[in-house]
Amino acid sequence: MSIRRFRNTLALAALLAAASDAGAQQLSEHQLVDTLGQVASVAPAVDVAMLTQELAANPGKGIAGLPHWSQLATLPQFFVEINFENNSVAIEPESYRTIGLIADALHHPLLRQYKFLVVGHTNATGDAKHNLDLSARRAEAIAEALSTTFSVEPTRLFSVGVGSEMPVDSANPKAADNRRVQLLNIGLVK
């Protein structure tokens, strides 16, 4: 199990550079709460519906070029490895411990008032359209597991897939490190 922790970053480029340089760490609920709880009191609310519409209306444009993505790059977030069966949304059994730790953190009193965006990433082994669809379905599978298996309120969870557009290892787009899940604190539950 590995985690890549992030504080507030100023730009998408800085976020990706930090992700590629970050060392693997043992995942803990404390780390998750600490990382996701770093919300500025004036943090912008993210309009997930608008982000989803932008993605649907601009296939192939790349999420990094969408107006709402730059807003997401500045929010508290982390990347975590979740293993899926090959070319599937079936979560490997060993990854349920990681999802359980995420759920424990989301149930923590400091985070109960926030909503979260689950972002799915793939490597570049398939075509772009397939990768985008697979990453969206995998992000949804994580959100569903959090809400059904671990009782995280589903109204606090949103999901989106970005395919292979944002590789951690850009020199090797087919690398396994590029398959990951990103969790972002997107603001207060209203």
Score class of each variant (00 low, 15 high):
62 G>M: 13
62 G>T: 07
63 I>H: 02
63 I>D: 09
64 A>P: 04
64 A>C: 05
65 G>I: 13
66 L>K: 06
66 L>A: 12
66 L>F: 07
67 P>D: 14
67 P>V: 12
67 P>E: 12
68 H>T: 13
68 H>F: 13
70 S>T: 15
70 S>K: 14
70 S>F: 15
71 Q>E: 07
72 L>W: 10
72 L>Y: 05
72 L>N: 10
73 A>F: 02
73 A>Y: 06
73 A>V: 13
74 T>L: 00
74 T>A: 12
74 T>E: 08
75 L>Y: 01
75 L>M: 09
76 P>D: 00
77 Q>A: 08
77 Q>V: 02
79 F>H: 12
79 F>C: 14
79 F>Y: 05
80 V>C: 08
80 V>P: 07
81 E>F: 12
81 E>C: 15
82 I>C: 06
83 N>R: 15
83 N>T: 15
83 N>D: 14
84 F>T: 14
85 E>N: 12
85 E>W: 00
85 E>G: 05
86 N>K: 15
86 N>G: 11
88 S>Y: 07
89 V>E: 12
90 A>Q: 13
90 A>E: 09
91 I>C: 00
91 I>F: 09
92 E>Y: 06
93 P>V: 09
94 E>D: 10
94 E>S: 04
94 E>C: 09
95 S>E: 07
96 Y>K: 03
97 R>G: 00
98 T>H: 10
98 T>Y: 10
98 T>F: 04
99 I>S: 05
99 I>H: 04
99 I>N: 06
101 L>R: 05
101 L>S: 08
102 I>F: 06
102 I>E: 00
102 I>K: 03
102 I>M: 08
103 A>T: 01
103 A>V: 05
104 D>V: 02
105 A>M: 07
105 A>W: 05
106 L>Q: 00
106 L>T: 01
106 L>F: 06
106 L>N: 05
107 H>I: 01
107 H>T: 08
107 H>V: 03
108 H>D: 15
110 L>Y: 04
110 L>N: 09
111 L>N: 09
112 R>D: 02
114 Y>N: 03
115 K>L: 06
116 F>G: 09
117 L>V: 04
117 L>E: 00
119 V>W: 00
119 V>S: 05
120 G>H: 03
120 G>K: 02
121 H>I: 07
121 H>C: 12
123 N>P: 07
123 N>S: 11
123 N>Q: 11
123 N>C: 14
